[in-house]
Design a binder for these strands. Structure first.
Lengths: 202, 202
DNA sequence: ATTATTTGCTAAACTATGTTCAGTAAATAA
DNA sequence: TTATTTACTGAACATAGTTTAGCAAATAAT
């Protein structure tokens, strides 16, 4: 009988309901509105029910974070149509930073907040995030191979470039540069990319 | 009569008691142990009393953060004895990152957490942090003036260098690079500084 | 068809947090 | 000696995440 299959399917549908309710709240009202009770309201079940489908809140945030990584990956797909590795590298940086500034709270959840990391399945099953990172790494490697970046270690260069971008956007997102008004963030990022790549890329 | 003076002094002493209790808890048991009730226990007063000396918890965290900035500034003092701007720049980076890795939670409070920023007196009275930043900026300016860094805008270069360092340490502190074990953080940072300065500094 | 069991769900409670407020007792002023 | 101000606190409020005991309906067994 296909009973257990149906049960399995219903369980997945419920998880999906919870996740999309969480996402709706997150998008519409921000991170602080994503509470177990609000999610429960949204799906018209009791708070305790949520715990029958997700171990804890951090697991929900982890699943939510994953949707963010998927969206970022999706945006990175255009890179495959850019032949020159330097152009590809520049485009990577722009896509990354644009994503961060356009989805500040999601970026925060993905790269800054502690909570979702407490629920990572395992240190290795970090697949969604790793995919984007390996894409960047291969772009940098292409730059090195093409003689556009000179370094003995492409992995270090990759990490440095990521760190630079993450550094800038996280300073803005967590408001550590109050001297710079928000409407200039995008411009400053462009200038920083310009400066850095001018020195790194030949 | 010096009565109001005494009152004023006692008020300051009480604020100091609360702050040092908070700091003690922070150092000994970590951020999560810094609760109003634990602070109250520590100073042997009731939780409500704490609110007679600090507006809210964020104000206490803000004051705590300030002690961190003072310590960082203190560590930066050795820079004045380094004549060559490039050496000074390298030393700045090392001091900054060493501080971050040796005082992860304090760094977190200073540069990552939202809470203490909610209690900033004003956007301008950011004096403690700005002092360190201006020091870095003048070092970078010296590098530019000496022809060691080529850029049309020393301010952008300064911001980029800070962002790079902040990026790396905050990735580590918030555990976004699980592929890199903690005992290699310091080594990776050295390599990144090496790579970046090799390209930026002549 | 009836009984037993499992499943899905929930009301209520528990713990912990930041925070407020009414009231008390001591210090000060009148 | 009385009035007032000051310093403090107990108790409560609101909001979290989370757990547990139990109920009712769906399913399985007899």
């Amino acid at each position: 009988m296909g009973l257990s299959e149906r049960k399995e399917r219903e369980k997945l549908e419920m998880r999906e309901m919870i996740l999309s309710a969480a996402k709706r709240l997150f998008i519409r009202e921000g991170f602080d509105s994503v509470t177990i009770r609000r999610i429960a309201d949204e799906i018209e079940y009791s708070p305790a029910t949520v715990y029958l489908y997700y171990k804890d809140k951090d697991s929900i945030l982890c699943a939510l974070q994953e949707t963010g990584f998927r969206e970022l990956s999706r945006r990175m797909e255009v890179l495959s149509s850019i032949a020159h590795p330097v152009d590809r590298l520049k485009a990577s940086g722009k896509i990354y930073c644009d994503f961060a500034l356009e989805n500040r709270e999601m970026y925060d959840l993905m790269f800054i907040m502690r909570a979702p990391m407490n629920a990572l399945p395992s240190p290795e099953e970090w697949t969604v995030g790793r995919h984007s990172y390996e894409l960047l790494q291969s772009t940098v490697q292409d730059c090195v191979d093409g003689g556009h970046i000179s370094t003995p270690d492409a992995k270090i260069a990759t990490f440095a470039l990521w760190a630079l971008m993450h550094g800038v956007v996280s300073i803005f997102i967590r408001e550590r540069a109050p001297m710079i008004p928000a409407d200039q963030h995008s411009r400053i990022i462009s200038k920083i990319m310009e400066f850095s790549l001018a020195n790194v890329v030949k």
